[in-house]
């Protein structure tokens, strides 16, 4: 190439080139945006889909609790879906009767700071071993630092079996709020 030609390359073409450049830049930006969509969807999946979920657990036959005179402790198996895994864990609950005489399932987790509340037969009531919060057999509070009654769990009866939905509740607040 001779120098004049070179000059043409350098001066005459920028308009056409910058137009092409803009077009290409636009395409590239478009492709970039289009490709960031799957990336963002991938990233936000746990926020949009339910990746944690608690199934109903079996607490025993309803007939077992027909002649309940005081709370009984049961260990239930809780199945939890956590992302790509399912965890199966055992949790302690108390089956008792509410003041109106209905079957009720209480979580053993103390609403104060989360210790495991125990049944004291001698006192005919529940007592928390940590800071001595005490509760009536139906779970209502009688004393101590706990801000509310023991938490009742959601129940339903399926084919004569008492099913419980195990959940955690926020500690240290006066109203029962599902946690997590």
């Amino acid at each position: 190439m001779s120098p004049p030609e070179l000059k043409r390359v350098a001066v005459a073409e920028p308009t056409r080139r910058s137009y092409l450049g803009w077009l290409l830049g636009l395409c590239t930006a478009g492709a970039g945006v289009a490709l960031s969509v799957p990336l963002i969807r991938f990233l936000l999946y746990p926020l949009r889909a339910r990746t944690t979920e608690v199934k109903w657990s079996d607490a025993g036959a309803v007939s077992d609790f027909a002649s309940l005179t005081g709370p009984v402790q049961r260990s239930i198996t809780v199945e939890q879906v956590d992302g790509w895994r399912k965890t199966v864990s055992d949790k302690i609950v108390y089956i008792t009767k509410s003041s109106s005489g209905e079957l009720e399932v209480l979580s053993a987790v103390c609403p104060h700071l989360g210790c495991s509340v125990q049944w004291r037969d001698s006192k005919h009531g529940f007592e928390c071993p940590c800071h001595a919060a005490s509760f009536r057999p139906d779970g209502s509070i009688t004393g101590g630092p706990a801000p509310r009654a023991m938490d009742t769990l959601q129940t339903q009866i399926q084919n004569g079996r008492l099913m419980v939905r195990y959940q955690y509740f926020r500690q240290l607040v006066a109203t029962k709020e599902v946690f997590g």
Partner: peptide, 21 residues
Amino acid sequence: PFEAEIEQPVVAATPETPANP
């Protein structure tokens, strides 16, 4: 379809004691 992995709990060595004495 995707099948979640099941994580078994560590089985407690001591059997639970009933609440009713």
